[in-house]
Amino acid sequence: MRVSLFITCYNDTLFPQTGRAVVRVLERLGHTVDFPPGQTCCGQMHWNTGYQAEALPLLQRFVDQFRASEVVVVPSSSCVAMMREHYPKMAATLDDPRLTADVEALLPKVFEFSEFLTRRLGLEDVGAFYPHRVTYHASCHGLRSLSLGDGPLRLLRAVRGIDLVELERVDQCCGFGGTFAIKNADVSTAMLEEKISAVLDTSADTCTACDNSCLMHLQGALHRQRTGVKTLHLAEILASDELSPYQDAAP
């Protein structure tokens, strides 16, 4: 299959290793990956913060970049949720029948990364090897907007060597919420504290998720508190195999 990768703006800039891992997994599974270079941002930050007028042109850009794609894979549940929950309404706002039709045609072809593996390809074992104690954080968008269910966990259970530990109160938000973490820093920090303590209770050395936004938030506190727990996007665990096991980034 020819898979178009929508990497998302913050993965592109801050977590390129996640994108590389997605490419690695998909190519290992025999798929061809392309990367439309005109892509930037899905518009989530603007839309969710109230800057609707600023978000609208980004919808048009996304559609232009991916209109011809066979499938679009996105390693971020919150960006996929943004598209599924808001793009149809945004297109309607713009009162552009062609755009509305394009959005309607494109959305069923857009998949969050784990969702693509479990639902579109019907896979659980993608040939990964990661001999570590791991806990999985279900991001709110993955859990509630995309209803990923136990899909990511099934992928993780099939990883060779993994010691998977469940996180207490897995349905609780980590407190990121985009600009919420800045606008309501105290409340966000309190929510984060609860999540961090749940992560530490698992004694996992790795906390994973389908969203680097949550992971960046968790990582911020895990590093600040010198816990030694690292955060890895699910794709990075699935990319790790015996031939080329995961290695910490070199300085």
Binding site: P16, G19, T189, L192, A221
Partner: peptide, 20 residues
Amino acid sequence: GWSQARDLQQMPQQTFRDWW
């Protein structure tokens, strides 16, 4: 507000699109 309780990792030297 972010840095009151969280660190932020330095931006990587190479973006995904540069790598690609």
